[in-house]
Design a binder for these strands. Structure first.
Lengths: 102, 102
DNA sequence: TATACTAACTTACGTAAAGTAACCAACTAA
DNA sequence: TTAGTTGGTTACTTTACGTAAGTTAGTATA
């Protein structure tokens, strides 16, 4: 009954508590990457990566750019909204360094 | 192949990208809460809440204390490790305020 | 001409995680 | 004796995810 949580916060945590979403954003922080590169670097399946990238694009967090080369190159990058998640990611890095063991 | 992500970071993001984990921690930030209170405040099912609280306890993030009253009262609270997630939660709050619509 | 190669997906199918609802144990109050 | 409380668990259904094969478009090779 006492659902007193801010709906914006709930949406944010809903986004980032979806499997892989955080890692995809983290992986794009240094710069644009293509599909196969993200796929192999974080170990996600192509099926789910495709799904996540569409979600993130529709949320305005990720941008998709097509380069009609051969074979086609498609680059995914963070929008301003996506890059603004960097402080959060840095906090996560800090926490993991301070509180988790190697 | 290029799995260059720090294993500690991967573990952290693995924890927080499990559904409900973030909301449970967030809900415990102000202080101890009992099972039914967490359940109703975030809208999680009892089955999964029970599962998550066990996980979080075994990760040293949440503490479980039994008060043998009638009916029994069980309080869940954050450990130091759990409370250390507060900066991350605050960043999430900030981001949601700045970038998501109501 | 036919076969093969690449990137970026999509489809079909099986397994794992989560939601729903009913039930249980222990204790007390009516 | 019946009912009510908290903090669960169990059985079952639905949704999410993983795996592997197939698709499309545009070359390049034999």
């Amino acid at each position: 009954m006492g659902k007193s949580i801010c709906p914006r916060f709930e949406k944010a945590i809903g986004l980032l508590s979806q499997r892989w979403t955080g890692l995809i954003v983290y992986q794009l922080l240094p710069g644009p990457q293509r599909f196969c590169s993200i796929e192999s670097s974080i170990g996600i399946s192509g099926r789910v990566l495709s799904e996540r990238l569409k979600d993130l694009e529709s949320e305005g967090i990720v941008n998709r750019e097509v380069f009609p080369e051969t074979p086609v190159r498609i680059e995914y990058s963070l929008t301003d909204k996506g890059r603004s998640l960097e402080p959060l990611m840095r906090e996560m890095e800090k926490w993991s360094q301070n509180w988790l063991e190697a």
